[in-house]
Amino acid sequence: MDDVFDITLTVNGRRVSRRVPVRQHLTDFLREELGLTSCHVGCEHGVCGACTVRVDGAATRGCLTLAVQADGAVVETLEGLSESGEIVDLQAAFVDRNALQCGYCTPGMLITAAEMLDAKQPMSRADIRTFLSGNYCRCTGYQAIVDAVETTLTARLAEQEPSA
């Protein structure tokens, strides 16, 4: 029988307690236990980035993290980020620029990009590409994604400049 473990964590701002099989990864926990299906399974070996979620503020591969390791952690998925409105500008830029086709990479891509935007540092297109290089997109060819992220970054940096 599977070894189980009781965990309590905060997911998208809500406290959640569950008894989980210790071998369950965070992605399956979010999907199967909590119905948070924005966290996608792409490769289950840490390469594709489709399962990227935020754990304690940091972009994390859900498939390389056991649910038990998230005991006590603050976990955020794209559902949570959408609810809070934190990346509403980035999401709008993705739609506007058609920075997604099938959309399967999009949740992980947005969460990774959100981490970059949070740093509030000017980034070149090459920097953006490098930052996103752990997230596989098969449809877009990446350019529209880079455009959308760049547009959002530029707008945010302009916003934080003190008005003269």
């Binding site: 972009a59 990774t112 930052f131």
Partner: peptide
């Protein structure tokens, strides 16, 4: 370090 994998991997 920038050559080590990618952001999400370096976070963990």
């Amino acid at each position: 370090l920038p050559y080590v994998a990618h952001v999400a991997i370096r976070n963990r």
